[in-house]
Amino acid sequence: MLDDITFKDPLNTFTGIEKYKLIFWALRFHGKILFREIALDVYRIWQPSENVILIRWNLRGVPRVPWEAKGEFQGTSRYKLDRNGKIYEHKVDNLAFNFPQTLKPVSVLDLVTACPASPNLTFSWGSVDSNSSSWIEFYQAVKDTLDQEEGLLPQDCVATCSW
């Protein structure tokens, strides 16, 4: 991978290898906190052209809520390669969410005690421009703190794994 790799999804664009590593660290971090079980299945890998690799995947999990719930979503990761075969862009698209059609009724108390105070992104510090993100800074601060605590969270399995 090149140092100037760009990651794109429907909501974000990040450039730089350190930000790329950090966003996947943040995904693993949230996965361990928010889900009892979580797994990423790779369904297909193919190369439609010399400079593109496509991966079709499915992410499924059981969230940490007091009622029975499961969720999953599928997507495609498109990796663009330079002349030397190095990845310079990773784009996630074709997202499809598959949630259960029937939900068990729960009390308001269950919802209040099970959910965080805000489902929205509420952290912010410093200025945010097209090349930075307060969330990147926040994740870096959390990662640095955990690294100082001798890695309280395992750092293995970047792409395909089950926790």
Rank of each mutant, 00 (worst) to 15 (best):
A117H: 07
L40Q: 15
I33L: 14
N84G: 11
P63M: 00
L34G: 11
D41N: 12
V106T: 13
L111V: 08
G31H: 02
L40C: 15
G85K: 09
K32F: 03
A39G: 13
G61W: 00
E72D: 08
S107H: 03
N120W: 08
L54C: 08
F97M: 13
F73G: 04
L81K: 00
L121F: 06
L109K: 13
T113Y: 11
R56W: 05
P100R: 04
P116I: 04
K70G: 07
R64W: 02
H90N: 06
W46V: 07
F97V: 04
F99S: 07
V106E: 05
I53R: 04
L95R: 10
S77V: 06
Q74P: 02
I87F: 07
E68L: 06
Y88R: 01
F29G: 10
L34D: 15
E50R: 05
F73A: 01
L40G: 09
P66C: 05
F97Q: 09
A117R: 10
T122N: 11
P119F: 03
S118T: 09
P66Y: 04
F35H: 12
A117E: 11
K104M: 08
D93A: 08
L111T: 06
C115L: 15
N94L: 05
V92N: 12
E89G: 01
K32M: 13
A39S: 15
L54T: 02
R83I: 07
W46P: 05
L40P: 08
V52M: 04
K80P: 00
S107L: 03
L34K: 14
R36E: 15
R78I: 11
K91M: 07
L109A: 06
F123Q: 13
T113C: 02
L95A: 07
C115M: 11
V52T: 14
L54S: 09
D110I: 00
K104S: 10
L121N: 15
H90P: 03
N120Y: 08
T102C: 08
G31Y: 00
I53W: 01
I87L: 07
F29C: 10
W67D: 06
P116E: 10
Q74K: 10
I38P: 11
G75M: 03
F97G: 04
F123H: 14
A69N: 05
G75T: 02
V112K: 05
R64G: 03
S49E: 15
I53D: 03
N84C: 09
T113P: 01
I53H: 07
A39E: 15
Q47G: 03
N51Y: 01
K104W: 10
G31I: 00
S49F: 00
L95T: 11
P48N: 05
